[in-house]
Structures are given as structure tokens and as C-alpha cells.
Design a protein around this nucleic acid. Structure first.
Length: 517
RNA sequence: GGUCCCUUCGUCUAACGGUUAGGACGUAAGAUUUUCAUUCUUGAAAUAGGGGUUCGAUUCCCCUAGGGACUACCA
């Protein structure tokens, strides 16, 4: 009884993330990796990275490194596979497993589940075009295969001679007729297909001696003892083929469990998020920057200022929720809270605004020291010298008002350098007639102070305001303008205290000079 | 076109068949503040439509509509 539960708890969990190195991974792929990772960690299982490079024509240099770097940046440690290829079920790169696939592909032909086909791509294209012209769809399937060039329709001698002459061939799967395929998807429940609507997929091609995705996928999942296949919904239509393949090999009883994740959709418009959506929407779709051939760079989350934990957090909540109101999670908390049963079925539209909010939340939760360390690097780039304590304190005062570390400078620049200009709007609004004279006098009063605490500065300022019978708000805003250069920032008296007496007085006098009457 | 999947505020989502349908992002208003921001309070905002089943459907079933994925010698 409860076979499934036993499978879940007793069977060793081994999951794989199996991207194709055809370019940078996008966040849909990253989320698939994340869900696999969370599932593996939660069950004390193994997280495997397998590179599916069975299409020799689509190989992109650097893509594999990119995948590795992305996972590393996000904090997903690969247990088997990856660049080092560690693990006992290797190689973990499909292009290095040629002989294995060849053997299994031929086995399928021998057992009658597959056949050799000689139709050229050009011929098939022509058939498709022809069918389209008469508003039909061409399929290489149980209805058409006997009229095409393959080992089912051709004589044994002909097949032999074609192969011996070096003519390229492929092995196709011989999809059986009228078989009901039932699967029980972990996120979708029961899903059924009939093989009558399926075609004879190419499984292996002689030209590059490589399998196509379907064969490689089944063979490797079997050989690598994969327990659960967690992948995007775009693979759902392939499930019946895959099930039949397991059946053909006699592995169906130990077939992995499937879980098809909902797609991540474009923020606006229709369809699933694609690699080009980032440029239009002004948000990254890649974890890391990726250099394009034309010299441009596709923006990455890292370079755009996102924390890896923020990306992980927001991706986890796209298609999954903990069942309560919690939204902020660390990776460890996600591992604890995650469950595949709570993964949604419907696609989730990506929301760039909420992405920023996640980053802001994680930023606020970091210590002032940690943010200061990150910010100090930026200060160095700007050539700004600043006392470490000053940076920590300044950052602590403003961190709640930014989404990214990169936005910090605009909020704290005045702590480190005098205003280079005064916001005209604020000047117009706050720099009234009575101000220049008052400020000059205030500078004198401040100069005469023997202490320099915020409260003392405030007392001195307030006393003069009272004496001159001016408005507190009026003066404070003008005072702020002299120190900050604009109408923003944290408590003014704290700013004055932090930049010091001499600097404060200088800024007041400079402002009077520059802005004048 | 065919196959399959999906459908709760604009968006992400919650809700043993019984709730004034909740939260978050965004948005609007107000309060506070020496400014901006923060913060706080409040508001607007959803069960696609139609049939069933049921004492009672957001929830279960069917149909319709809409959306999506797939339909390569790509993954």
C-alpha cells in the first residue's frame, strides 16, 4: 500500500537540472534549477547538473561556464556533474556519452521499437510544405511511415546497401497504435494521452553520431538513477513519448516521477518569458551579464545590483507559495518550507516591480556593515575617500529608501562631498529673502559652539530662529539646501554632526555665496 | 489545424464544500516628519460565462470562451 509515499520517502532522491548550452540560462531555467535544488536538499538527495549538448550545431562557447557561474552565484551547489564533472555516473556531458546512446538506439531497432529512416531533411520539409498547402499537417507517424524511406518500407537489401554506401540515416521511434498513456504528474495530477496522435520522433542521427534530446534524456535519467524529473511545462507534451521509451526499454516500473512546472510568462502581453523580453521591459532576464556577438551585453541580475538571495527568493515565489503569508525567505528557509505539492499549475507572469521590492527587502535586512562593505567598492570606483565608520553610519541612515546598493550614492553623496550644485526647484521654494542674512549669522553662531552634537546644533539653530522670529520649517529647509544641495535626506542635524563643524559652516557660507540673494 | 495544460483583484497568490473571498506588489487618499523617503492608517480592486451535483459551490463535474505550451535530424 501507499507505494507512492514509500517511493518518496525511501527512495534516494536524485534530481537533475539539464540545460542545453545554447546560450545564457534565463530565469525560467534558473527557477527550474532552483526547484530541483530545493527538492534535492529537502530530501537529503543529490542535485545533478547534466549538460544536454546533443545538438552539435547549436553549441555556444562559454554557455556551460555561464551555467556553472550562475548556479554558483545563486548558491546552488552542484553535487554531481558541472564543470568538474564529479560524481560516479559520469560523464555528465551528453556529447561525451556517444557510445552509450548508440548502443541503446540500436537496441530499440533490434527489439522492434525503432527503425532506420533515410528521408533527408529537405525531403521532409517539402512534404511539410505540401501538406500545409492543402491545409493539412504532415507527420512522420504510423499513418505515413510506410510510404516513406525507412527500414519498415524498404527491403532489407536496400536498407543494407544504403547504410553501407554511407548514406546518412536516423533512428526513429516506432510509436505503437492506440495506446492510452496515463501519467500522474506531481503538480498536475492525472494526465492522459493516446499514442494515435503522436509521431515517430527521431532518436538518433548518424551524421554526428548523437541522439536527440528524447533518447539521451531517458537513457541518462535511467543510468544516472534519477528519481524525479522536475522540468518546465513545455515538456509536458513529450511525456507520452518518454513513457513509451521507458516501456520500450523495459524500465517503466522504475521510471522517475514527473513534475511539470508552470511557465514564467512575460510581464506584459502574451506568451512565455523569452530572452528578448528583458531589453523591452527594462529588467534582466538573465542571472549574469552575457556578452552578445554584436558587442552588446544582455543584462544580468548580478550586474544590475540584485542580491542572489533576492533573485532566489522571488523566483521561488513564482509558481510556489508556502501556504501562509510569508514572502521573505533565505535559501535555507526555502529548503525547509518548499513542497512540490504547493507548486501551482498555472503560468506566472513576471513582475519587475515586485522583483525590486524583493531586493529592497533583502537589502534592509542586511547589516549596515555588510552594505557598507559593498558600497565601499563603489566609493573606490568613484575615487571617494571615506572613513569606514562614516560609511557604515551613512548607509544605515538611508538604506530603507533604496532598492539597490547602486542607488545609495545619490542618497549619501553629501556625507562625503559638499554639494556641487543646488536643486533649482528647492532654491526657488525654500531660499527666501530673509535666508542669506540668517544663514550668515547662523554660521557665526555655529562657529561659536563648543560642542558638536546634533541636539546642540539643533538648539543653537532653534534659538536663532526664535530670535529672528522666522519659521522653523522655512529655515530648516534652507539649511538643508546648504548642506545637501537638495530637499532630501535623513535628519539634518545628524548630517551636520556627521560632516563636522568646519564642513557645516563652510557649506552654509558657500551656499550663501553661490545662491546669493 | 491537432494534442495537452491552465483560468480568484492590474500582477503574484490564500481560502477541510460553509470566510464580510485574506495577504503581497503596484495604485489612490490621509496622518506623521525639518525635506525627500521611510513608517502608519484607510480606500479602490477578483472568483471568465453558462449549466449541473449539493441544504450550500472559488472549491466537484460538463460545456463554452479566453490564455498558454507543444507540434524539427532544437532542447
Amino acid at each position: 500500500m501507499q507505494k507512492n509515499n514509500d517511493d518518496m520517502t525511501n527512495q534516494k532522491v536524485r534530481v537533475r537540472f539539464a540545460p542545453s548550452p545554447t546560450g545564457p540560462l534565463h530565469i525560467g531555467g534558473v527557477r527550474t534549477a532552483l526547484f530541483n535544488y530545493l527538492f534535492a536538499r529537502q530530501h537529503g538527495g543529490t542535485f545533478i547538473l547534466r549538460i544536454e549538448d546533443t545538438d552539435s550545431t547549436r553549441f555556444v562557447p562559454g554557455a556551460e561556464e555561464y551555467i556553472n557561474n550562475s548556479l554558483a552565484w545563486l548558491g546552488m551547489q552542484v553535487d554531481e556533474g558541472g564543470l568538474e564533472g564529479k560524481g560516479e555516473y559520469g560523464p555528465y556531458k551528453q556529447s561525451e556519452r556517444r557510445e552509450i546512446y548508440s548502443k541503446y538506439a540500436k537496441q530499440l531497432v533490434e527489439t522492434g521499437w525503432g527503425y532506420y529512416a533515410f528521408d533527408t531533411p529537405a525531403e521532409l520539409d517539402a512534404l511539410r510544405a505540401e501538406a500545409e498547402a492543402s491545409k493539412k499537417a504532415f507527420a512522420y507517424d504510423m499513418h505515413s511511415r510506410l510510404s516513406l524511406k525507412n527500414s519498415l518500407s524498404l527491403s532489407e537489401e536496400e536498407v543494407k546497401s544504403r547504410m553501407e554506401s554511407g548514406e546518412p540515416w536516423v533512428i526513429r521511434f516506432k510509436m505503437p497504435e492506440n495506446v492510452e498513456v496515463h501519467t500522474n504528474d506531481m503538480v498536475r495530477g492525472a494526465v492522459a494521452f493516446n499514442t494515435n496522435t503522436l509521431d515517430d520522433k527521431v532518436l538518433y542521427k548518424s551524421v554526428d553520431q548523437l541522439p536527440t534530446y528524447h533518447l539521451a534524456n531517458i537513457v541518462d535519467d535511467r543510468l544516472m538513477k534519477i528519481s524525479h524529473v522536475i522540468r518546465g511545462e513545455e515538456w509536458l507534451p513529450s511525456v507520452p513519448l518518454h513513457v513509451m521509451l521507458y516501456r520500450a526499454f523495459g524500465w517503466e516500473d522504475e521510471m522517475p516521477q514527473f513534475a511539470h512546472l508552470p511557465l514564467i510568462l512575460k510581464p506584459t502581453g502574451k506568451g512565455k518569458l523569452s530572452k528578448r523580453d528583458g531589453d523591452k521591459g527594462g529588467f534582466p532576464v538573465f542571472p549574469l551579464d552575457w556578452k552578445l556577438n554584436d558587442g552588446n551585453v544582455a543584462a544580468g541580475y548580478r550586474e544590475s545590483g540584485y542580491f542572489p538571495e533576492a533573485l532566489v527568493n522571488l523566483l521561488a515565489l513564482l509558481g510556489w507559495n508556502p501556504g501562509d503569508d510569508r514572502e521573505l525567505f533565505s535559501m535555507d528557509e526555502l529548503i525547509e518550507a518548499f513542497s512540490i505539492e504547493r507548486v501551482n499549475k498555472s503560468g506566472a507572469r513576471f513582475d519587475p516591480d515586485k522583483a525590486k521590492w524583493f531586493n529592497q527587502q533583502h537589502l534592509v535586512r542586511k547589516s549596515d556593515e555588510e552594505i557598507a562593505t559593498l558600497f565601499t567598492e563603489e566609493l573606490k570606483e568613484k575615487g571617494v575617500e571615506a572613513a569606514p565608520e562614516m560609511v557604515v553610519k551613512a548607509v544605515g541612515l538611508v538604506k530603507e529608501r533604496v532598492n539597490f546598493v547602486s542607488e545609495l550614492w545619490d542618497q549619501v553623496a553629501f556625507f562625503f562631498q559638499a554639494p556641487v550644485q543646488y536643486d533649482p526647484k528647492v532654491v526657488k521654494k525654500r531660499w527666501k529673502e530673509s535666508i542669506p542674512g540668517f544663514m550668515t549669522e547662523l554660521a557665526g553662531k555655529l562657529d561659536a559652539m563648543t560642542t558638536w552634537q546634533a541636539e546642540d546644533i539643533k538648539a543653537t539653530t532653534a534659538a536663532l530662529i526664535e530670535e529672528k522670529e522666522l519659521g522653523f520649517g522655512l529655515v530648516m529647509n534652507a539649511f538643508r539646501l546648504t548642506l545637501v544641495g537638495g530637499g532630501f535626506g535623513p535628519d539634518l542635524m545628524t548630517i551636520a554632526e556627521m560632516i563636522g563643524k568646519e564642513e557645516t559652516i563652510n557649506r552654509v557660507r558657500t551656499a550663501v555665496e553661490v545662491i546669493g540673494a
